[in-house]
Design a binder for these strands. Structure first.
Lengths: 147, 147
DNA sequence: GACCTGAGTTGTACTGTGCAACCACACCGC
DNA sequence: GCGGTGTGGTTGCACAGTACAACTCAGGTC
């Protein structure tokens, strides 16, 4: 690997971390009613059209107990509901309630606006490329959760 | 903003979050002796050649009390040292000790290797562009911590 | 000197998290 | 069928990271 590539790798590593740290802080300020974790989980449920707690844990590299508690809280808040899977009684399929969909949409709108502001002066081609790099990175060569 | 750009923005948002969640988990597995926070702070000290606790807090959008405790722990562990600033007695300049430099280098090596593996099949041009997008994003149009 | 500002610490409380132990059901080999 | 093994999920527990507020100490301003 060339030294230019090596230094790019270091930058990617470092900047990803800066991003992550700031994300948490600003999510708290931007939408205190829905933590970043909750927002992420709700978003995943919407995107996937309902899934199991185990799937969430695997996708976000979280312990199943953590997801279990988050899910319990979201259910108490009336944002998601659990349907027992008729095909497998061990499984609970999670899905958004109407209220969950509503609050998710609202938070998504505000986050989207903030991102749009921040990215306003980026050429569209760069945005598209940036997005595709991130997807490619997270998809990984083989799904490994390297970092 | 076009719809292609809009959807790119959503993807950026979503994938950044996935990255962040996984980063934390894999840092714990990869180098349990140095938490992701500690690693990040040490890295910043090395990069900046020593700075104040307040600077760290500002850069990572952390509360000063949080940084204060982290710094205290790192000092107890012998990884950093505080030098009172002779020019301003309120200020403590933080800097790495030899031990701190050593462990930082070691963890950096292992992280770098993991990233290199993950990014091994990326063309260099893409790596460089990806890195520059991240830097540009974090620098922000005006330094705002949008997310 | 009185006052305001900025750096840092400490008390307190809470959230997110992982690990380990556990329960309940499903699947598999016999 | 039936016992062993595996998988989805919950609960008990401990701990790290974090924020907020109240505080101390040092500087600068007038």
């Amino acid at each position: 690997m060339s030294s230019a590539a090596q230094s790019a790798v270091e930058t990617i590593q470092r900047e990803m971390t800066v991003f992550a740290r700031r994300a948490r802080a600003s999510a708290g300020r931007m939408h205190p009613e829905l933590s970043l974790v909750s927002y992420t989980l709700l978003g995943h449920l919407e995107e996937s059209g309902g899934c199991r707690a185990t799937d969430l844990a695997a996708h976000y590299a979280l312990d199943k107990s953590t997801v279990s508690r988050q899910v319990a809280a979201l259910e108490r808040a009336g944002l998601i509901e659990r349907r027992p899977d008729p095909a497998d009684h061990r499984v609970q399929v999670l899905d958004l309630t109407a209220a969950g969909r509503e609050i998710l949409a609202q938070v998504t709108r505000s986050r989207r606006a903030a991102f749009r502001d921040r990215l306003a002066d980026w050429p569209e081609a760069d945005l598209v490329r940036f997005a595709s790099y991130l997807e490619r990175y997270n998809a990984g060569p083989d799904g490994t959760d390297t970092d």
